[in-house]
Every structure is written in structure tokens, then in C-alpha cells.
Design a binder for these strands. Structure first.
Lengths: 337, 337
DNA sequence: TTGTACGCGTTATCAA
DNA sequence: TTGATAACGCGTACAA
């Protein structure tokens, strides 16, 4: 079933059919209607390959999933990003081509080269790390790129992340409103930009609320185990805060474990708030109050960036998504001293 | 950069270039080498659209992600399946086209129709449910289909799942070897085929090991909450087994919570084993011993099925992947009575 | 307003 | 062993 078939049945030439189906104004309204009706009746759909060959437009976006067996922190974010990305691009008539690269493969072929070969019009990267060998090439890419949760400067590269500063404020406001004044921070590693942003936000909040003297930072590495050990050390030193703000949920769960082991009750003895809203926090005991990242919206925004670029616009290279507070059972109100 | 450009530079016609690049035996070894070398030097890559237009082969597989906001049980399986799928198809030179359908959209457009329009050669479905409106159409599909974790009969549809029967045996063997003889089963809902298979496997194991009189089944619905409540009821009735085998991890975590609340220690008082190896079980306290599903292998097998179909073979329509036992801290050895 | 003719970059079928 | 030529299905100048 091609436009030629339709042309024959309609008694016109294929050019007229092509024009009609593409809503050209150069064709009589009457014949246009007739042809359109015929086309749907016949269940016609254009051959995308032929169309792409002549228009030189692929109407396709690429998504790179940079997974690494040893790092599982993305958990179900991956699929949620995908959800936002896929619906946004499908709403705009774009196809989505998937690429996954495991760590060992990443050296073999250039991402950008791959995109050119597949005629992808824009790319999204998920799971990018600072040791990726293709960073420079991506930064110089002529085709629009958007990276989720990883900032990279480049003329055509965008950066989508959740607003960590706002997220930390949300968490601390919640603790503050529940009467907490002695709040320690279980931070992430110094090599992680996200960890530093969160830690900085904590510092500023404490300072601006007259709690500068209460600032206390334990540094972990985002694993449950590090949260567990740092908390154990804090317990041993004897000075427990009334609340603990962790830079991610896994460390928060480690802290919960350490405190429970020493006979403390959560949240009656110590309130704990995490960050990321991983599923484990929903199923832990007590349910972990935390900050959620709206991964679906993040995915949609990444696509949005690419489309604006493709339209020739100049979208902001950095776009932060509002996080939200998810209240469960690990924070309790205390009397204000 | 097209074959014509190369032809001009090599002093031959584009046909010769095409033949050389496709390793045709009809071209002199000498010129073939020369042209190949020239092509790589120039960084040539063929225009897939032109090629597909004439060969009528898309070299593309489709993946449908049938996500539903209200059901989050797939957790990070989704991305792991994808990993297996993407690497397997890329190894065979196939592209991967992504489709996601949220529940409300699923009525709008036929999956199979979509596949035809995109010229997809084979499809994989993830997250299929029995109330999907397109099941009949999929069953009748002429293009090869493989569904993960959902069985559907059809000439060209395959079914990939983990071997639930074997998984349950693995779990019960582990309990048996640790001296447990009084083992209750926290099962899933009757409407779930997987739940029934697991329950049946439990029954058979108990019977074949002379523990028929110890068979005890609590029926939940795969949620943490149902595991919690069923376990509470069991505690109230007073007859606690030494071990509990749950049909999934979330119910197992619910059981852990109920038991802890009543002052029981896990695993010293009751051993618990889950199923699925969700991340939450890794971060729970105690770490949950469970059965893992090898989602990456499942994804790869789905692709494998499609390729065999495409080659004209007749692969088995049902393929079960071996699960594996993941030992953490929720099972302890007890003296055999 | 419609038809004719050409080109997009390949592969494939003839002849030579 | 190579070259000329025709497709593949579509979009679009140009002519009518």
C-alpha cells in the first residue's frame, strides 16, 4: 500500500496524494478530503524510510543508558526517566532509539559517531559519570545533547537535574517546623557534585536560621554501609542531634540501622530524613520521610530541551526540576526548646 | 559521504563500491581491499534509510514498556531487562525502538499496528497484564513477539519467565539444609499465575519431603501490607513455624515488620526467605535472603527467541530462566528436631 | 489546481 | 570482474 496505489484508486497522480496527505494548500479542498478519506480507509501509512531518505529528517531521538553493573544506585529511576522521555517524544511524533553501554563496551565506539550513523536528531544520556572517556567529544557535539544529572559545558549540551538546593530546604523546613534545631547532616563524598550541592545547601540553611553552631557533618559515600558506620561513630562520641538529614536514602537507612542497634527508637529518639525517594525507603521500618525527584518530569524536560534546540531556539542549558517532600514515619515533632 | 563519492575517488562505479563493502565475492580481492580501506579512511557509514528502503529490512526490534503508575512492582527490573535486550540486539546489529504506554493511552493505538508502521521486525513486551485490551491481536500477530513474564498462546509469540518451580525448590532446599521442617508459605493472590505456580511448588516440595502435615498457607496480595497483616493473624493464632517462605520480597518485608513488632527476632526466632531480589531486601534489616531472577538473562533470551523466529526456526514458545539463591541474613540454621 | 520528472543513497539485475 | 541501469517509496521543483 503506497501513495501510488492510492493515486490509482483516486484517479490522480501520486504527487497529488502526497500533497493531500501532507496538508499542502496547493490542492483542492475537495480532492484533498477524498484522498485523505481513502487513505484512512485503506489503512495507509507512509513508508518512513522512503520519507526519511528524501527529507533527510529521521524524527528520531536517541537515549543512552550508561549502566554499570557495580553501581546500582539508579534503581528504578532509569525506567521512570524513560517514561517521561518516551511519552514526551512520542507526543511530538518522534521515535526513540535505545542504546545501552556497559562499562567495558564504552571504549569501543564513540557515542556521537553512533548517533550520526543512526541519524539521530538529538540524544539524552542517563547514568553519565565523570570518568567516561567520551566527555570531551560529547561537549563538542554538533547534535543537541541533554544529560540527566550530570553537568557538562558545551554549545549544544543541556543539563537536567532536580533542584538539590530546594530539596534540602524542603527537608530542613520540615524538620524545623517539627521543632528540630539540632540537625546533623550525613553527607555524600566530596567527589560527587550533587553531594557538595546538598551539603552546601545544608550549611546555608543552618546559618540563615541561626543554627550555625549546630552544624555537624558526617561524610559518607552514598552507601548504606557508610551511613551505618558514620552514625555508629557519632553515637560513640555521645553527641546525638535530634534529627539527621542524610544526603541520600541509602545512607539514611544505614543510620536507622545503627541507631536501632544501639537501642534508639526512630523517630521517637532521633528523626531521620533521606533524599531520593528510593523504593527501599518506602518498605523500610519505619517508612522513610524523604525528598522525591520527579524523574518523569525530568525525562520530559530533557526532551523539551532537545526540541527547542531543534527548532533553532536557545533554551537554558541548565534546567532544575522541583523536588517534593514525601512524608512517611521517620520524623516526629518535638517541643521547641 | 556516499558510495558515489567513494566511487569517484576510487575510479570505479558505485556498484563496485557497494559490492566491496558488502563483501561480495564478485569483486576482485585487490579492488575490494582498496575500497574498504578508502571507506574507513573517509569515515564512511552507509545511509540506513536508503538501504532499508531497498532491502525492506529494518534491522530493528521494538520494546514495549507497559507501565502503570499504580503498580510499581517492576521496580528496577525494567532497566535490567532492557540491559539484556539492548546488548543482545546490538550484538546482532539490530536497533532498538522504544515504546512506552501508560495505562490510559493503551486503548488509543494498536501495538501491532504501531510495529508495522515502524517496520519493526520483532517485539518484546514488558509489563503485560491480563486486562490489556490488545491481547487477542498480539496473539494473532504475524510478526514475532516475545512477552516477558506473561504467557500468551500464539503462532508467533514466545514467553520468557524465570523458573518459579525451581526457584521455590532452591529456597526450600536452603531452609531444609538449615534444619527447618516447619515452614509456612506466605502466598500471592489466586488471580496471579505466578503466585499459583509458586504455591504449587511449595506444596509439592513439602509433600515429597514428608512434611505434608506442616503445609500452611497464608494468602496475601504481593503487597508489604498484606504480608504484615497475614503474619499478624498468624502470630495471634499462636502457631509460629520456624521458617516462612514468602512468594515475594515485599510480603516478606511485611512479615518481618509484624514479627519484629511482636518482639520476635529475625532470624533467631523465625527465618524468612523472600522471592524476587528487589533492592529493598538488600537494604532491609536484616538483609533478606531471597531468590533472584536474572533479569538480564531474561532480556537476552527474549531477543534470542525473536532472532530464531526471524531466521525461520521454531524456538520453544516458552523459555524458563534459572533463578538463583541469594543468601543474606534472614535465615539461620536450627537443630533438626 | 494538477501532472511530469527527478533525486534521495542504496541494492540488485542485467550486459559487457 | 566490472559498469550501466533500474528499482525502492516518497517529496518537490517545474511545467502545464
Amino acid at each position: 500500500m503506497t501513495i501510488k496505489d492510492i493515486a490509482r484508486l483516486a484517479g490522480v497522480t501520486h504527487s497529488t496524494v502526497s500533497r493531500s496527505l501532507n496538508d499542502s494548500p496547493l490542492v483542492a479542498a475537495e480532492t484533498k478530503e477524498k484522498i485523505k478519506k481513502l487513505a484512512t480507509e485503506l489503512g495507509y501509512s507512509p513508508n518512513t524510510f522512503a520519507r526519511r531518505l528524501v527529507t533527510k529528517k529521521s524524527n528520531t531521538l536517541g537515549v543512552f543508558f550508561l549502566s554499570r553493573a557495580e553501581i546500582n544506585f539508579m534503581e528504578n529511576f532509569g525506567t521512570q526517566f524513560l517514561d517521561g522521555i518516551a511519552t514526551a517524544s512520542s507526543n511530538n511524533g518522534y521515535d526513540l532509539l535505545m542504546f545501552t553501554m556497559t562499562r567495558d563496551l564504552s571504549n569501543q565506539k564513540s557515542y556521537i559517531r553512533l548517533c550520526q550513523e543512526k541519524h539521530v536528531e538529538g540524544v539524552i544520556f542517563i547514568g553519565m559519570t565523570s570518568d567516561d572517556p567520551h566527555l570531551a567529544e560529547i561537549a563538542a557535539s554538533q547534535i543537541p545533547v541533554c544529560i540527566i544529572d550530570f553537568e557538562l559545558k558545551g554549545d549544544h549540551v543541556g543539563f537536567i537535574s532536580s533542584d538539590n538546593d530546594q530539596g534540602i530546604r524542603l527537608a530542613l523546613d520540615h524538620l524545623w517546623q517539627n521543632g528540630h534545631r539540632s540537625i546533623a547532616h550525613l553527607g555524600g563524598p566530596e567527589v560527587s557534585p550533587v553531594a557538595m550541592i546538598r551539603e552546601d545547601a545544608y550549611r546555608r540553611y543552618m546559618t540563615s536560621h541561626g543554627l550555625e553552631s549546630k552544624i555537624k557533618i558526617l561524610r559518607g559515600d552514598f552507601t548504606k554501609d557508610s551511613g551505618y558506620r558514620r552514625t555508629q561513630e557519632m553515637i560513640r562520641q555521645g553527641h546525638l542531634p535530634t534529627a539527621l538529614l542524610a544526603a541520600n536514602d541509602y545512607m539514611a537507612l544505614g543510620a536507622v540501622k545503627a541507631l536501632k542497634e544501639q537501642g534508639y527508637k526512630i523517630p521517637s529518639d532521633v528523626s531521620i530524613i533521606g533524599y531520593d525517594n528510593v523504593l527501599a525507603g518506602e518498605y523500610s521500618d519505619p517508612g522513610l520521610t524523604t525528598i522525591g525527584q520527579n524523574p518523569i518530569e525530568m525525562g520530559a524536560s530533557a526532551v523539551q530541551y532537545l526540541f527547542e534546540k531543534l527548532k533553532g531556539g536557545a533554551p537554558s542549558p541548565i534546567h532544575l526540576i522541583n523536588p517534593n517532600l514525601i512524608i512517611r514515619d521517620s520524623v516526629r515533632p518535638i517541643p521547641i526548646r
